[in-house]
Structure formats: structure tokens, C-alpha cells
């Protein structure tokens, strides 16, 4: 700890020196981003942010991901990256705890470890900082408000989630329930069921169909997962009941474009995965070159994103509120 403070101090000196002499610091560090799995369209966008930022900064960037998203599949990759001598490992962890040991090993070798788009919940001490798209406490209320605006704040709604123990989704669902219960604005909206599609299209579809037949009075379904919202929309599209059942949730514009265009889905939300990659690269550059102190409360500027503040547990967000996509703006987004 003391060492880190010293380093930070030295870094601050270095910062002053850089400004004084105008000399270039070492920007050609090696950064790698380890996604959850290959073939996941979500990570193409984060990857794009890294690529573009590294072009600006001058760092060497590579993207790797295991073939499957099981808990241990990222471990050999992390080991290989340590051996390759990278300076920064950014990772979308497949497990909150299975990688503690190997990440500690990386940090012991002086590698900056960033969790990007997901955190090591409960094991935050095994990474240096965490970059999340938005403050995840806002996701629940934002989604409830969007649903309410679609159904006129009245009627039975249900939630179609990922797996029963998906940590992010469960945080959001808890917040949704709290919002529905406490805010009088939503007193006429009733959450009748929460079901889990395990992030598989087949399972999500079956669960959605069961929802519709178990709750004939359903007017809305919130699916806070990209697989679930697409599956739910497809069921509604196939049955031609878009004017009766409103689907919304968190989705990728590339997967939802068709449903928005034909009116199956009026609006859904997400954030910009691209900006996560962008911010992570700039943050890493700043920390390695000493221009950013990795401490709670530090503020720094990132091109195109403005001022970023390091929050509690060294968490940073790229945007304050979720972005809502609808027929008017969907064509502006290409991820």
C-alpha cells in the first residue's frame, strides 16, 4: 500500500515533469481485453472502443476470448498474457471468484488489472479498478419508468431474466421491485412473475410463451438481458400481439433493429459498450503514465466523454443514465 502511495507520488512528480518539458511519456504499453466468449456480438463493440482509443493513444491492443463462457475458461488466457508481459489486463470476468488467484499473480507482476463491463462482486480487492457503463443502481428504475411510459403506468407486467443467479440482473430486478413498491407513480403496475431464460434463445422463448399463457392479462415484459429481450420480442412478433403486450429491456441495437422497425418493440435501453473500451484504454494510459491517480474521488477528463470520477470501490461509469433506443434514433447506432 505504502509502495503504491509512493508510486502515486512519483507519478505526480512525473506528471509535473511531463508538463514542464512537454516530453512524451510511454504510451506504447501493451493492453489486452479478455472477453467473456467469442462470438458474442456485445464484445465487438467494446473491442471497437479499445481499438480506436489505442490508435489515438499509441498503445498496442489485442482482444482475446475463450470459446465458451464457463467460469474457468479465462484462466489459461490470463496466464498466457502474464507470460507475454502485457502491462494492462482488462477483463469481462466469467466468474466473480474463480480467477482471484491468477489475477493476484498478474498484479504481483505489476500488471494493471481492470474489470470492464462486469465486476468481481465481493472480490473487488483482486482487481485495480472497474469500468461499468452506467451506475447499475439506475438500471432498475430506468427500466421501470420506460415500461410505465409504454403501458400508461397500469397493468400486469413480468420480468424475463437471464440465469437465476446472474448477479447484475438480480441487482436490477431487486431495484425494479423496490421502485415498483415504493414510488406511488407505479402503484397501478403489478409485477406478476419473474422467469429465467438462462440467456439461451430456445429457453427464453419457451419461458416467454409460458408467461403469455400463464398470465393472459399481461401487458408488458421487461427483459434486462440482450438474449431475453430479443427472444421475447420474437414471440410477440410471431403472435402479432405487439399492441397488447409491450416488450422492453436491455438490448443490442443490431439485434433489435428489425423489431423496432416493424413496431414490435417501441423502445428499449442500453448503454454504449464502445465507450467502455474507450474509457478503459484512456484510464490505463493515465494510470501507467501517472496522470491519473487510481483513488476513490479522483476526477479526470477523457476525450469525447468529459469528466469521469472514480467512485466507491474504484468503479467508473461512462454515462449517467441509460440510453433509450426507439424508431427515431436506432439508425444512428451500429453496434
Amino acid at each position: 500500500m505504502l509502495k503504491r502511495h509512493l508510486l502515486a507520488g512519483l507519478a505526480a512528480l512525473g506528471l509535473a515533469a511531463t508538463f514542464a518539458t512537454g516530453a512524451l511519456a510511454a504510451h506504447d504499453f501493451k493492453v489486452v481485453y479478455i472477453g467473456k466468449n467469442t462470438g458474442n456480438p456485445y464484445f465487438d463493440s467494446i473491442n471497437g472502443g479499445f481499438v480506436d482509443a489505442c490508435k489515438q493513444i499509441g498503445c498496442q491492443y489485442e482482444f482475446v476470448a475463450p470459446a465458451t463462457a464457463e467460469a474457468t475458461s479465462q484462466i489459461p488466457i490470463i496466464e498466457a498474457q502474464i507470460q507475454r508481459g502485457v502491462n494492462v489486463i482488462a477483463i469481462a470476468p466469467n466468474s466473480p471468484d474463480a480467477m482471484n488467484q491468477v489475477l493476484d499473480e498478474a498484479r504481483a507482476k505489476g500488471i494493471l488489472v481492470l474489470a470492464v463491463n462486469g465486476d468481481l462482486v465481493g472480490n473487488e480487492s483482486h482487481r485495480d479498478a472497474n469500468i461499468l457503463p452506467v451506475d447499475f443502481t439506475k438500471t432498475g428504475p430506468n427500466q421501470v419508468e420506460l415500461m410505465g411510459s409504454l403501458i400508461g403506468y397500469k397493468g400486469d407486467i413480468a420480468i424475463l431474466s437471464a440465469t437465476t443467479e446472474a448477479p447484475d440482473q438480480n441487482t436490477w430486478i431487486a431495484a425494479m421491485k423496490k421502485t415498483l413498491a415504493e414510488d406511488p407513480k407505479y402503484k397501478d403496475m403489478k409485477l406478476v412473475a419473474t422467469v429465467y431464460g438462462d440467456d439461451q434463445p430456445e429457453k427464453s422463448t419457451t419461458e416467454m410463451e409460458a408467461l403469455l399463457s400463464n398470465y393472459p392479462d399481461l401487458v408488458g415484459v421487461i427483459a434486462p438481458t440482450t438474449v431475453g429481450v430479443a427472444a421475447a420480442a420474437q414471440v410477440v412478433q410471431q403472435r402479432g400481439i405487439a399492441d397488447k403486450v409491450h416488450v422492453t429491456g436491455l438490448g443490442l441495437p443490431s439485434e433489435m433493429r428489425d423489431f423496432i422497425k416493424d413496431g414490435t418493440v417501441k423502445a428499449f435501453q442500453l448503454w454504449s459498450p464502445y465507450n467502455e473500451g474507450w474509457l478503459a484504454a484512456y484510464f490505463a494510459d493515465g494510470v501507467l503514465n501517472g496522470t491519473i491517480k487510481n483513488e476513490v474521488g479522483t476526477k479526470f477528463d477523457v476525450p469525447n466523454l468529459g469528466s469521469i470520477t472514480i467512485g466507491d470501490k474504484n468503479v467508473m461509469n461512462t454515462q449517467a443514465e441509460l440510453t433509450t433506443f426507439n424508431a427515431d434514433n436506432i439508425d444512428q447506432f451500429n453496434f
Partner: peptide, 16 residues
């Protein structure tokens, strides 16, 4: 041994 290496156990241990 795998459990000791990982520090935690999940159902997908050793998948494939």
C-alpha cells in the same frame, strides 16, 4: 485439486 486451484467450485468445473 481443481477446486483448490480455483478457490471456488461451480457446476461447470472441468466442462468439456
Amino acid at each position: 485439486m481443481t477446486a483448490s486451484r480455483l478457490g471456488s467450485v461451480r457446476y461447470d468445473l472441468g466442462l468439456g
